[in-house]
């Protein structure tokens, strides 16, 4: 699974970094960032649920989840 932040729609509500503070962070203005764990856009194994939860709670739908077909 891959994840990214749509910085054009993120308004800094912070639901993503409230719910998964190791997967999402805030920049100095409160907008969402990826973290060391997600910097390459890859969701660490076993953390797919947390990413989906963050996406489902973002009021602006700015956490973009890219599900991949299972091989």
């Amino acid at each position: 699974m891959r994840v990214s932040i749509d910085s054009a729609t993120c308004q800094g509500h912070g639901r993503c970094y409230d719910l998964a503070p190791d997967l999402f962070g805030e920049d100095e203005e409160g907008y969402a960032t990826l973290t060391a764990l997600t910097a390459d856009g890859e969701v660490p194994a076993g953390r797919e649920g947390d990413v989906r939860l963050a996406a489902a709670n973002c009021p602006e739908s700015a956490v973009l989840v890219h599900e991949e077909a299972r091989l």
Partner: peptide, 23 residues
Amino acid sequence: REVNRHAAFGLGIHRCVGSHLAR
């Protein structure tokens, strides 16, 4: 509630600046 995409702090460019403080 697990999924709670509420808009108490507004939506779009005027998102409450004080939302983290209020929380």
